[in-house]
Write a protein that binds this DNA or RNA. Structure first.
Lengths: 231, 231
DNA sequence: TAACGTTATGTGTTATAACACTTTATCGAA
DNA sequence: TTCGATAAAGTGTTATAACACATAACGTTA
Protein backbone atom coordinates (compact mmCIF):
# COMPACT_ATOMS: atom_id res chain seq x y z
CA UNK A 1 0.00 0.00 0.00
CA UNK A 2 1.37 3.38 -0.93
CA UNK A 3 1.77 5.10 2.38
CA UNK A 4 1.44 8.80 1.70
CA UNK A 5 1.32 10.66 4.97
CA UNK A 6 -1.62 12.97 4.65
CA UNK A 7 -3.12 15.33 7.12
CA UNK A 8 -6.37 14.10 8.53
CA UNK A 9 -9.52 15.72 7.30
CA UNK A 10 -10.62 18.20 9.86
CA UNK A 11 -14.07 17.40 11.10
CA UNK A 12 -15.87 20.55 11.99
CA UNK A 13 -17.09 20.51 15.54
CA UNK A 14 -20.67 19.73 16.28
CA UNK A 15 -23.09 22.58 16.68
CA UNK A 16 -23.48 21.58 20.30
CA UNK A 17 -19.77 22.04 20.94
CA UNK A 18 -19.74 25.35 19.09
CA UNK A 19 -22.70 26.67 21.05
CA UNK A 20 -21.09 25.59 24.32
CA UNK A 21 -17.89 27.38 23.40
CA UNK A 22 -19.73 30.55 22.44
CA UNK A 23 -21.51 30.48 25.75
CA UNK A 24 -18.25 30.05 27.64
CA UNK A 25 -16.79 33.02 25.81
CA UNK A 26 -19.85 35.10 26.58
CA UNK A 27 -19.62 34.10 30.22
CA UNK A 28 -16.00 35.13 30.70
CA UNK A 29 -16.50 38.08 28.36
CA UNK A 30 -19.05 39.61 30.65
CA UNK A 31 -21.92 39.44 28.20
CA UNK A 32 -24.26 38.16 30.89
CA UNK A 33 -24.91 39.59 34.29
CA UNK A 34 -25.02 37.32 37.33
CA UNK A 35 -28.56 36.12 37.91
CA UNK A 36 -29.57 36.49 34.27
CA UNK A 37 -32.02 33.85 33.14
CA UNK A 38 -30.94 32.01 30.02
CA UNK A 39 -33.56 30.36 27.84
CA UNK A 40 -32.99 27.65 25.32
CA UNK A 41 -34.94 29.44 22.63
CA UNK A 42 -33.06 32.68 23.10
CA UNK A 43 -29.73 30.91 22.70
CA UNK A 44 -30.99 28.93 19.72
CA UNK A 45 -32.35 31.98 17.95
CA UNK A 46 -29.39 34.22 18.67
CA UNK A 47 -26.94 31.63 17.32
CA UNK A 48 -29.15 30.46 14.50
CA UNK A 49 -29.45 26.83 15.53
CA UNK A 50 -32.36 24.64 16.52
CA UNK A 51 -33.40 23.85 20.06
CA UNK A 52 -31.53 20.56 20.20
CA UNK A 53 -27.92 21.72 20.16
CA UNK A 54 -28.79 24.80 22.19
CA UNK A 55 -30.38 22.76 24.91
CA UNK A 56 -27.59 20.23 24.94
CA UNK A 57 -24.92 22.90 25.19
CA UNK A 58 -26.74 24.50 28.09
CA UNK A 59 -26.99 21.26 29.99
CA UNK A 60 -23.26 20.70 29.45
CA UNK A 61 -22.50 24.13 30.84
CA UNK A 62 -24.74 23.32 33.79
CA UNK A 63 -22.86 20.05 34.34
CA UNK A 64 -19.62 22.02 34.35
CA UNK A 65 -21.04 24.36 36.96
CA UNK A 66 -20.87 27.40 34.71
CA UNK A 67 -24.65 27.69 34.76
CA UNK A 68 -27.12 26.74 37.42
CA UNK A 69 -30.72 25.68 37.65
CA UNK A 70 -33.07 28.17 39.19
CA UNK A 71 -36.75 27.76 39.99
CA UNK A 72 -38.81 25.68 37.56
CA UNK A 73 -35.84 24.28 35.73
CA UNK A 74 -34.82 27.62 34.35
CA UNK A 75 -31.14 28.13 33.78
CA UNK A 76 -29.29 31.16 35.02
CA UNK A 77 -25.87 32.66 35.40
CA UNK A 78 -25.05 31.78 39.00
CA UNK A 79 -24.65 34.75 41.31
CA UNK A 80 -21.51 34.63 43.39
CA UNK A 81 -22.17 34.74 47.11
CA UNK A 82 -19.42 35.50 49.58
CA UNK A 83 -19.58 31.91 50.82
CA UNK A 84 -19.30 30.49 47.37
CA UNK A 85 -16.38 32.73 46.53
CA UNK A 86 -14.64 31.53 49.68
CA UNK A 87 -15.24 27.92 48.70
CA UNK A 88 -14.00 28.38 45.17
CA UNK A 89 -10.94 30.20 46.44
CA UNK A 90 -10.03 27.34 48.76
CA UNK A 91 -10.41 24.83 45.95
CA UNK A 92 -8.43 26.99 43.57
CA UNK A 93 -5.56 27.25 46.02
CA UNK A 94 -5.44 23.49 46.40
CA UNK A 95 -5.69 22.74 42.69
CA UNK A 96 -3.74 25.57 41.14
CA UNK A 97 -1.06 25.24 43.79
CA UNK A 98 -0.65 21.62 42.81
CA UNK A 99 -0.56 22.48 39.12
CA UNK A 100 1.97 25.26 39.59
CA UNK A 101 4.30 23.21 41.70
CA UNK A 102 4.46 20.40 39.18
CA UNK A 103 4.66 22.79 36.25
CA UNK A 104 7.77 24.45 37.68
CA UNK A 105 9.50 21.10 37.43
CA UNK A 106 8.25 20.09 34.02
CA UNK A 107 8.12 23.22 31.85
CA UNK A 108 10.86 23.56 29.26
CA UNK A 109 12.76 26.76 28.52
CA UNK A 110 10.78 27.68 25.44
CA UNK A 111 7.50 27.49 27.28
CA UNK A 112 8.86 29.53 30.16
CA UNK A 113 9.98 32.36 27.92
CA UNK A 114 6.55 32.42 26.31
CA UNK A 115 4.87 32.60 29.69
CA UNK A 116 7.13 35.39 30.84
CA UNK A 117 6.33 37.23 27.63
CA UNK A 118 2.60 36.85 28.31
CA UNK A 119 3.17 38.37 31.72
CA UNK A 120 4.98 41.36 30.23
CA UNK A 121 2.16 41.81 27.75
CA UNK A 122 -0.25 41.68 30.66
CA UNK A 123 1.61 44.43 32.48
CA UNK A 124 1.60 46.60 29.38
CA UNK A 125 -2.10 46.02 28.75
CA UNK A 126 -2.91 46.84 32.35
CA UNK A 127 -0.94 50.07 32.26
CA UNK A 128 -2.60 51.02 28.98
CA UNK A 129 -5.96 50.30 30.65
CA UNK A 130 -6.79 47.75 27.95
CA UNK A 131 -8.82 45.57 30.25
CA UNK A 132 -10.14 43.11 27.70
CA UNK A 133 -6.59 42.46 26.59
CA UNK A 134 -5.36 42.23 30.15
CA UNK A 135 -7.91 39.55 31.03
CA UNK A 136 -6.80 37.54 28.02
CA UNK A 137 -3.11 37.88 28.86
CA UNK A 138 -3.82 36.97 32.43
CA UNK A 139 -5.48 33.77 31.26
CA UNK A 140 -2.55 33.02 28.99
CA UNK A 141 -0.08 33.56 31.80
CA UNK A 142 -1.82 31.31 34.28
CA UNK A 143 -2.76 28.52 31.92
CA UNK A 144 0.61 28.69 30.24
CA UNK A 145 1.96 27.66 33.61
CA UNK A 146 -0.75 25.13 34.36
CA UNK A 147 -0.44 23.38 31.04
CA UNK A 148 3.09 22.59 32.09
CA UNK A 149 1.92 20.20 34.78
CA UNK A 150 0.87 17.66 32.15
CA UNK A 151 -2.31 16.80 34.01
CA UNK A 152 -5.17 17.25 31.55
CA UNK A 153 -7.91 16.36 34.02
CA UNK A 154 -6.59 18.88 36.51
CA UNK A 155 -6.39 21.61 33.90
CA UNK A 156 -9.97 21.00 32.84
CA UNK A 157 -11.12 21.25 36.44
CA UNK A 158 -9.27 24.53 36.91
CA UNK A 159 -10.84 25.89 33.75
CA UNK A 160 -14.24 25.05 35.17
CA UNK A 161 -13.47 27.00 38.31
CA UNK A 162 -12.32 30.05 36.39
CA UNK A 163 -15.58 29.98 34.46
CA UNK A 164 -17.52 30.40 37.68
CA UNK A 165 -15.85 33.64 38.60
CA UNK A 166 -15.27 34.86 35.07
CA UNK A 167 -18.26 37.14 34.94
CA UNK A 168 -17.25 38.90 38.12
CA UNK A 169 -13.61 39.27 37.25
CA UNK A 170 -14.79 41.05 34.16
CA UNK A 171 -16.94 43.36 36.19
CA UNK A 172 -14.27 44.41 38.64
CA UNK A 173 -11.11 44.21 36.59
CA UNK A 174 -10.68 47.93 36.01
CA UNK A 175 -10.38 48.58 39.73
CA UNK A 176 -8.31 45.50 40.38
CA UNK A 177 -6.04 45.60 37.40
CA UNK A 178 -4.51 48.89 38.34
CA UNK A 179 -3.46 47.69 41.74
CA UNK A 180 0.31 47.67 41.87
CA UNK A 181 0.20 44.63 44.13
CA UNK A 182 -1.25 42.45 41.41
CA UNK A 183 1.63 43.17 39.09
CA UNK A 184 4.09 42.51 41.88
CA UNK A 185 2.50 39.12 42.51
CA UNK A 186 2.90 38.16 38.90
CA UNK A 187 6.51 39.31 38.88
CA UNK A 188 7.23 37.13 41.85
CA UNK A 189 5.65 34.14 40.12
CA UNK A 190 7.65 34.83 36.97
CA UNK A 191 10.91 34.98 38.93
CA UNK A 192 10.16 31.70 40.71
CA UNK A 193 9.31 30.14 37.38
CA UNK A 194 12.58 31.19 35.78
CA UNK A 195 14.47 29.87 38.79
CA UNK A 196 12.47 26.63 38.65
CA UNK A 197 11.62 27.15 42.27
CA UNK A 198 8.59 24.87 42.64
CA UNK A 199 7.76 25.80 46.21
CA UNK A 200 8.24 29.47 45.45
CA UNK A 201 5.98 29.33 42.42
CA UNK A 202 3.29 27.56 44.38
CA UNK A 203 3.51 30.16 47.12
CA UNK A 204 3.36 33.03 44.63
CA UNK A 205 0.34 31.57 42.83
CA UNK A 206 -1.46 30.81 46.07
CA UNK A 207 -0.78 34.29 47.31
CA UNK A 208 -2.08 35.85 44.14
CA UNK A 209 -5.26 33.78 44.22
CA UNK A 210 -5.88 34.77 47.80
CA UNK A 211 -5.10 38.39 47.06
CA UNK A 212 -7.42 38.71 44.10
CA UNK A 213 -10.15 36.82 45.96
CA UNK A 214 -9.95 39.30 48.81
CA UNK A 215 -10.21 42.11 46.33
CA UNK A 216 -13.22 40.54 44.69
CA UNK A 217 -14.85 39.89 48.03
CA UNK A 218 -14.46 43.53 49.06
CA UNK A 219 -16.01 44.55 45.78
CA UNK A 220 -18.89 42.14 46.32
CA UNK A 221 -19.60 43.50 49.78
CA UNK A 222 -19.53 47.05 48.51
CA UNK A 223 -21.58 46.69 45.38
CA UNK A 224 -24.12 44.12 46.40
CA UNK A 225 -24.48 43.36 50.06
CA UNK A 226 -27.37 41.10 49.22
CA UNK A 227 -24.83 38.63 47.85
CA UNK A 228 -24.46 37.50 51.43
CA UNK A 229 -27.92 36.03 51.37
CA UNK A 230 -28.06 34.66 47.87
CA UNK A 231 -27.35 31.04 47.24
CA UNK B 1 -58.06 33.04 52.93
CA UNK B 2 -58.26 29.62 54.42
CA UNK B 3 -54.65 28.73 54.80
CA UNK B 4 -54.43 24.97 54.74
CA UNK B 5 -50.80 24.00 54.94
CA UNK B 6 -50.21 21.43 52.25
CA UNK B 7 -47.09 19.57 51.32
CA UNK B 8 -45.61 20.68 48.06
CA UNK B 9 -46.19 18.50 45.05
CA UNK B 10 -43.09 16.55 44.25
CA UNK B 11 -41.90 17.17 40.74
CA UNK B 12 -40.51 14.04 39.21
CA UNK B 13 -37.07 14.48 37.75
CA UNK B 14 -36.62 14.83 34.02
CA UNK B 15 -35.91 11.74 31.98
CA UNK B 16 -32.51 13.18 31.20
CA UNK B 17 -31.62 13.37 34.88
CA UNK B 18 -32.94 9.88 35.52
CA UNK B 19 -30.96 8.42 32.64
CA UNK B 20 -27.81 10.19 33.84
CA UNK B 21 -28.29 8.78 37.32
CA UNK B 22 -28.86 5.26 36.01
CA UNK B 23 -25.69 5.53 34.00
CA UNK B 24 -23.72 6.70 37.01
CA UNK B 25 -25.00 3.76 39.01
CA UNK B 26 -24.09 1.37 36.23
CA UNK B 27 -20.64 2.89 36.03
CA UNK B 28 -19.81 2.47 39.70
CA UNK B 29 -21.71 -0.79 39.80
CA UNK B 30 -19.34 -2.36 37.34
CA UNK B 31 -21.96 -2.98 34.65
CA UNK B 32 -19.62 -1.68 31.98
CA UNK B 33 -16.07 -2.72 31.28
CA UNK B 34 -13.43 -0.09 30.62
CA UNK B 35 -13.21 0.62 26.93
CA UNK B 36 -16.81 -0.38 26.25
CA UNK B 37 -18.44 1.68 23.55
CA UNK B 38 -21.74 3.20 24.59
CA UNK B 39 -24.28 4.11 21.93
CA UNK B 40 -27.13 6.52 22.30
CA UNK B 41 -29.63 4.11 20.86
CA UNK B 42 -28.58 1.28 23.12
CA UNK B 43 -29.07 3.46 26.19
CA UNK B 44 -32.37 4.78 24.88
CA UNK B 45 -33.73 1.34 24.10
CA UNK B 46 -32.54 -0.30 27.28
CA UNK B 47 -34.11 2.41 29.44
CA UNK B 48 -37.20 2.85 27.30
CA UNK B 49 -36.73 6.49 26.41
CA UNK B 50 -36.23 8.32 23.16
CA UNK B 51 -32.90 9.43 21.76
CA UNK B 52 -33.17 12.96 23.11
CA UNK B 53 -32.86 12.36 26.85
CA UNK B 54 -30.44 9.50 26.30
CA UNK B 55 -28.14 11.64 24.22
CA UNK B 56 -28.35 14.54 26.62
CA UNK B 57 -27.57 12.36 29.62
CA UNK B 58 -24.56 10.92 27.83
CA UNK B 59 -23.18 14.32 27.00
CA UNK B 60 -23.60 15.35 30.62
CA UNK B 61 -21.65 12.31 31.76
CA UNK B 62 -18.99 13.19 29.22
CA UNK B 63 -18.84 16.73 30.57
CA UNK B 64 -18.37 15.28 34.03
CA UNK B 65 -15.51 13.17 32.77
CA UNK B 66 -17.24 9.90 33.53
CA UNK B 67 -17.36 9.04 29.83
CA UNK B 68 -15.02 9.99 27.05
CA UNK B 69 -15.16 10.52 23.34
CA UNK B 70 -13.39 7.93 21.26
CA UNK B 71 -12.90 7.85 17.50
CA UNK B 72 -15.71 9.21 15.33
CA UNK B 73 -17.55 10.79 18.21
CA UNK B 74 -18.35 7.51 19.82
CA UNK B 75 -18.62 7.51 23.56
CA UNK B 76 -16.85 4.99 25.71
CA UNK B 77 -16.06 4.08 29.28
CA UNK B 78 -12.59 5.56 29.69
CA UNK B 79 -9.85 3.05 30.34
CA UNK B 80 -7.63 3.93 33.26
CA UNK B 81 -3.98 4.24 32.34
CA UNK B 82 -1.29 4.27 34.99
CA UNK B 83 -0.59 7.91 34.22
CA UNK B 84 -4.21 8.87 34.56
CA UNK B 85 -4.55 7.00 37.82
CA UNK B 86 -1.52 8.87 39.13
CA UNK B 87 -3.06 12.17 38.11
CA UNK B 88 -6.41 11.43 39.66
CA UNK B 89 -4.72 10.29 42.84
CA UNK B 90 -2.81 13.55 43.16
CA UNK B 91 -5.98 15.55 42.64
CA UNK B 92 -7.89 13.40 45.08
CA UNK B 93 -5.29 13.92 47.77
CA UNK B 94 -5.47 17.67 47.32
CA UNK B 95 -9.27 17.84 47.24
CA UNK B 96 -10.27 15.15 49.69
CA UNK B 97 -7.56 16.25 52.09
CA UNK B 98 -9.06 19.72 52.05
CA UNK B 99 -12.57 18.39 52.55
CA UNK B 100 -11.56 16.10 55.41
CA UNK B 101 -9.65 18.76 57.26
CA UNK B 102 -12.56 21.18 57.20
CA UNK B 103 -15.09 18.45 57.96
CA UNK B 104 -13.27 17.51 61.16
CA UNK B 105 -13.91 21.02 62.40
CA UNK B 106 -17.51 21.34 61.28
CA UNK B 107 -19.18 17.96 61.76
CA UNK B 108 -21.53 17.67 64.71
CA UNK B 109 -21.70 14.71 67.09
CA UNK B 110 -24.71 13.08 65.50
CA UNK B 111 -23.07 13.03 62.10
CA UNK B 112 -19.85 11.65 63.52
CA UNK B 113 -21.58 8.72 65.18
CA UNK B 114 -23.35 7.94 61.92
CA UNK B 115 -20.06 7.97 60.03
CA UNK B 116 -18.39 5.73 62.58
CA UNK B 117 -21.33 3.36 62.30
CA UNK B 118 -20.91 3.25 58.52
CA UNK B 119 -17.29 2.33 59.03
CA UNK B 120 -18.21 -0.53 61.35
CA UNK B 121 -20.75 -1.76 58.82
CA UNK B 122 -18.02 -1.57 56.20
CA UNK B 123 -15.70 -3.71 58.27
CA UNK B 124 -18.45 -6.27 58.82
CA UNK B 125 -19.35 -6.36 55.13
CA UNK B 126 -15.72 -6.78 54.16
CA UNK B 127 -15.20 -9.66 56.58
CA UNK B 128 -18.36 -11.30 55.31
CA UNK B 129 -17.03 -10.86 51.78
CA UNK B 130 -20.12 -8.89 50.81
CA UNK B 131 -18.28 -6.73 48.32
CA UNK B 132 -21.24 -4.89 46.85
CA UNK B 133 -22.26 -3.85 50.34
CA UNK B 134 -18.71 -2.95 51.26
CA UNK B 135 -18.37 -0.60 48.30
CA UNK B 136 -21.58 1.12 49.33
CA UNK B 137 -20.52 1.47 52.96
CA UNK B 138 -17.16 2.75 51.88
CA UNK B 139 -18.89 5.46 49.87
CA UNK B 140 -21.09 6.32 52.83
CA UNK B 141 -18.12 6.58 55.14
CA UNK B 142 -16.09 8.86 52.91
CA UNK B 143 -18.89 11.11 51.76
CA UNK B 144 -20.34 11.22 55.23
CA UNK B 145 -17.10 12.90 56.18
CA UNK B 146 -16.87 15.08 53.09
CA UNK B 147 -20.40 16.39 53.38
CA UNK B 148 -19.30 17.83 56.68
CA UNK B 149 -17.06 20.35 54.99
CA UNK B 150 -20.09 22.31 53.78
CA UNK B 151 -18.56 22.94 50.40
CA UNK B 152 -21.06 21.73 47.80
CA UNK B 153 -18.90 22.53 44.80
CA UNK B 154 -15.99 20.61 46.27
CA UNK B 155 -18.15 17.60 47.04
CA UNK B 156 -19.48 17.51 43.51
CA UNK B 157 -15.95 17.59 42.15
CA UNK B 158 -14.88 14.73 44.39
CA UNK B 159 -17.88 12.71 43.27
CA UNK B 160 -16.79 13.23 39.69
CA UNK B 161 -13.36 11.88 40.50
CA UNK B 162 -14.75 8.80 42.20
CA UNK B 163 -16.84 8.11 39.12
CA UNK B 164 -13.70 7.86 37.01
CA UNK B 165 -12.20 5.07 39.05
CA UNK B 166 -15.49 3.47 40.06
CA UNK B 167 -15.43 0.77 37.44
CA UNK B 168 -11.98 -0.35 38.45
CA UNK B 169 -12.60 -0.30 42.16
CA UNK B 170 -15.46 -2.64 41.48
CA UNK B 171 -13.21 -4.96 39.53
CA UNK B 172 -10.49 -5.23 42.13
CA UNK B 173 -12.37 -4.83 45.37
CA UNK B 174 -12.38 -8.49 46.37
CA UNK B 175 -8.59 -8.56 46.51
CA UNK B 176 -8.30 -5.14 48.05
CA UNK B 177 -11.10 -5.30 50.54
CA UNK B 178 -9.59 -8.15 52.42
CA UNK B 179 -6.36 -6.33 53.03
CA UNK B 180 -6.04 -5.73 56.74
CA UNK B 181 -4.25 -2.47 56.05
CA UNK B 182 -7.35 -0.92 54.52
CA UNK B 183 -9.38 -1.54 57.65
CA UNK B 184 -6.57 -0.13 59.77
CA UNK B 185 -6.55 3.04 57.67
CA UNK B 186 -10.23 3.53 58.19
CA UNK B 187 -9.90 2.97 61.92
CA UNK B 188 -7.25 5.62 62.10
CA UNK B 189 -9.51 8.04 60.25
CA UNK B 190 -12.41 7.24 62.56
CA UNK B 191 -10.27 7.86 65.65
CA UNK B 192 -9.05 11.20 64.32
CA UNK B 193 -12.62 12.14 63.50
CA UNK B 194 -13.87 11.38 66.99
CA UNK B 195 -10.98 13.39 68.45
CA UNK B 196 -11.73 16.23 66.00
CA UNK B 197 -8.11 16.10 64.97
CA UNK B 198 -8.26 17.93 61.64
CA UNK B 199 -4.63 17.39 60.70
CA UNK B 200 -4.81 13.77 61.75
CA UNK B 201 -7.94 13.13 59.72
CA UNK B 202 -6.43 14.74 56.67
CA UNK B 203 -3.31 12.61 57.05
CA UNK B 204 -5.33 9.43 57.50
CA UNK B 205 -7.49 10.13 54.45
CA UNK B 206 -4.52 11.07 52.32
CA UNK B 207 -2.71 7.94 53.39
CA UNK B 208 -5.68 5.76 52.56
CA UNK B 209 -6.08 7.33 49.12
CA UNK B 210 -2.43 6.76 48.38
CA UNK B 211 -2.58 3.23 49.72
CA UNK B 212 -5.59 2.16 47.69
CA UNK B 213 -4.17 3.86 44.60
CA UNK B 214 -0.98 1.85 44.93
CA UNK B 215 -3.03 -1.27 45.26
CA UNK B 216 -5.04 -0.42 42.18
CA UNK B 217 -1.92 0.42 40.23
CA UNK B 218 -0.35 -2.91 41.05
CA UNK B 219 -3.52 -4.63 39.92
CA UNK B 220 -3.51 -2.62 36.69
CA UNK B 221 0.06 -3.58 35.93
CA UNK B 222 -0.66 -7.23 36.60
CA UNK B 223 -3.94 -7.63 34.79
CA UNK B 224 -3.47 -5.37 31.84
CA UNK B 225 0.02 -4.18 31.07
CA UNK B 226 -1.34 -2.52 27.96
CA UNK B 227 -2.92 0.07 30.24
CA UNK B 228 0.48 1.73 30.16
CA UNK B 229 0.03 2.59 26.54
CA UNK B 230 -3.64 3.47 26.43
CA UNK B 231 -4.71 7.04 26.63
C1' DT C 1 -60.28 49.99 42.27
C1' DA C 2 -58.95 45.39 43.55
C1' DA C 3 -59.35 40.58 43.20
C1' DC C 4 -60.19 36.86 40.35
C1' DG C 5 -60.72 33.87 36.37
C1' DT C 6 -59.48 33.40 31.51
C1' DT C 7 -56.75 33.56 27.60
C1' DA C 8 -52.41 34.02 25.29
C1' DT C 9 -47.68 33.62 25.25
C1' DG C 10 -43.36 31.76 26.74
C1' DT C 11 -40.61 27.78 28.13
C1' DG C 12 -38.77 23.24 29.22
C1' DT C 13 -39.33 18.42 27.85
C1' DT C 14 -39.60 14.61 24.87
C1' DA C 15 -40.40 11.97 20.66
C1' DT C 16 -39.75 11.46 15.91
C1' DA C 17 -37.95 12.01 11.30
C1' DA C 18 -34.33 13.01 8.13
C1' DC C 19 -29.61 13.32 6.93
C1' DA C 20 -24.63 12.13 6.59
C1' DC C 21 -21.31 9.15 7.75
C1' DT C 22 -19.32 4.70 9.43
C1' DT C 23 -19.23 -0.05 10.11
C1' DT C 24 -20.66 -4.56 9.04
C1' DA C 25 -22.56 -7.96 6.00
C1' DT C 26 -23.06 -9.88 1.51
C1' DC C 27 -21.74 -11.57 -2.69
C1' DG C 28 -19.46 -12.07 -7.03
C1' DA C 29 -15.00 -12.32 -9.52
C1' DA C 30 -10.12 -13.54 -9.73
C1' DT D 1 -10.47 -19.27 -0.92
C1' DT D 2 -9.61 -14.52 -0.91
C1' DC D 3 -10.04 -9.90 -2.31
C1' DG D 4 -12.79 -6.01 -3.23
C1' DA D 5 -16.98 -3.73 -4.42
C1' DT D 6 -21.64 -3.05 -3.19
C1' DA D 7 -25.53 -3.23 -0.22
C1' DA D 8 -27.39 -3.10 4.36
C1' DA D 9 -27.51 -1.89 9.00
C1' DG D 10 -25.88 1.05 12.61
C1' DT D 11 -24.81 5.55 14.58
C1' DG D 12 -24.29 10.47 15.61
C1' DT D 13 -26.32 14.91 14.48
C1' DT D 14 -29.84 18.16 13.89
C1' DA D 15 -34.42 20.09 13.06
C1' DT D 16 -39.16 20.02 13.97
C1' DA D 17 -43.52 19.06 16.19
C1' DA D 18 -46.27 18.15 20.12
C1' DC D 19 -47.09 18.33 24.86
C1' DA D 20 -47.28 20.02 29.74
C1' DC D 21 -46.52 23.59 32.61
C1' DA D 22 -45.52 28.44 34.06
C1' DT D 23 -45.97 33.24 33.46
C1' DA D 24 -47.98 37.43 31.72
C1' DA D 25 -51.67 40.01 29.84
C1' DC D 26 -56.31 40.96 29.74
C1' DG D 27 -60.74 41.73 30.91
C1' DT D 28 -64.67 40.84 33.99
C1' DT D 29 -66.99 41.19 38.24
C1' DA D 30 -67.82 42.56 42.94
Amino acid sequence: MAVHRLDLIERSETLTAQVAEKLREALIGGVFAPGDKITIRAVAKSLGVSLTPAREALSILAAEGALEFGANRTLMVPPLSIDRLAEITRIRIALEGLAAERAARLLDEREITRIVAANEALTRATKAEDFKGAILRNHEFYFGIYRGCRMPTLIKMIEGLWLRTGTYVNLIYPAFGLARKGIENHERAARALKARDAEGLRAAIEFDIRYSAEHLEAELRAKQPEALKLA
